[in-house]
């Protein structure tokens, strides 16, 4: 049941306990309890909204930074990753396989701001061997949602 509840909430954080109860067939109070518990044990981290800021004229600069790192004794990549993810500018931080180690998504108000952050905060961290910055030119899809030109239902009037 918990998985069913989570799936509904992942797609629509707005869904009410009552709605979820109907959609899963589980009693309201059980749904509420399960959600409470999931919030407590951080299965549910947060309820957020995907926003297309450009619509309100707010240009945001996004950049994906490849970071090559020298792993450290005992803690591997974790402590460097932590030093990076503690910065609020780092929106997403992944350890990845391949030619670099950490992938960091940075957002800022201007390209300058992002570049400064990389040059002054990220690159100088001890253990960081090098960075490659990719500025995002266009966001097509965000977390499963197509930002513009989403397909509409094109049902024709039919008679059967």
């Amino acid at each position: 049941m918990l998985k069913d509840i989570l799936k509904i909430l992942e797609n629509d954080a707005h869904a009410t306990t009552k709605q979820i109860s109907t959609m899963t067939g589980a009693p309201s109070d059980e749904v509420a309890k399960a959600i409470k518990q999931a919030e407590k044990d951080r299965t549910i981290l947060k309820y957020k909204t995907i926003i297309n800021w450009e619509k309100v004229g707010d240009e945001q600069v996004w950049a994906l930074i490849e970071v090559r790192v020298t792993p450290q004794r005992d803690v591997g990549f974790d402590s460097i990753a932590e030093r990076i993810y503690r910065f609020p500018q780092a929106r997403t931080v992944y350890l990845v396989s391949g030619t670099y180690d950490l992938l960091v998504l940075i957002t800022g108000k201007t390209m300058h701001e992002v570049a400064d952050f990389v040059a002054q905060k990220l690159a100088p961290i001890e253990g960081v061997q090098g960075t490659v910055t990719h500025f995002v030119l266009k966001r097509y899809k965000e977390d499963g949602e197509i930002l513009e030109g989403k397909e509409e239902v094109k049902r024709q009037p039919v008679t059967l």
Binding site: E151, V153, K154, R155, P157, V158, T159, L160
Partner: peptide, 28 residues
């Protein structure tokens, strides 16, 4: 003719209709 047909002729002439009529998936 299919009894469903009549309603779709009528339906086509009204705006703002929510159709629970068509027996087909709304997914593309």
């Amino acid at each position: 003719p299919s009894g469903i047909r009549k309603f779709f002729d009528l339906l086509a002439s009204i705006e703002g209709v929510i159709s629970l009529g068509v027996g087909e998936p709304d997914f593309t």
